[in-house]
């Protein structure tokens, strides 16, 4: 049985390579049928905001790539409600379907996985 992994994505899409690296891990894991899930935390929730235009700064379209996660078998996507609140985002108006969790649910989530990778 492969070890389950939770990727904790904490970086904004525009702050450097962290967001992209986390996505690449998720896609590679999914391509090999590994049990990978994602949690968006802190500035990482900004990856889920709508209407972002990567082409304006000559970057690859992270939003479109994130929408491919279910095709790669990465279906469990979670987001920290408090991080959303602090940044004026609503869980109902994000770029892809994610499950918002409160602090208690997040503690249970982090406990459940064999491996945590925070980027």
């Amino acid at each position: 049985m492969a070890k389950s992994m939770l990727l904790v994505c904490r970086q904004s899409p525009w702050s450097g390579s962290g967001a992209r690296e986390a996505l690449d891990i998720a896609l590679a894991g999914g391509a090999f049928d590994l049990p990978v899930s994602l949690l968006f935390l802190d500035d990482g929730v900004l990856q889920l905001a709508t209407a972002q235009q990567a082409a304006a700064v000559q970057q690859k379209d992270l939003s479109a790539n994130l929408r491919a996660l279910p095709m790669f078998g990465v279906d469990e996507l979670y987001v920290d409600q408090r991080s959303l609140d602090a940044r004026g985002l609503s869980a109902e108006a994000l770029d892809l379907p994610v499950t918002p969790l409160d602090d208690a649910a997040l503690r249970t989530l982090l406990d459940r996985f064999d491996l945590l990778v925070t980027l």
């Binding site: 391509a31 690859k60 379209d61 479109a64 790539n65 929408r67 491919a68 095709m71 790669f72």
Partner: peptide, 16 residues
């Protein structure tokens, strides 16, 4: 697929 997701699928996502 590429127009929607801006990447090339590996085998599993292609099949899916």
């Amino acid at each position: 697929f590429y127009a929607e997701f801006q990447l090339s699928p590996a085998t599993r996502p292609l099949i899916k």
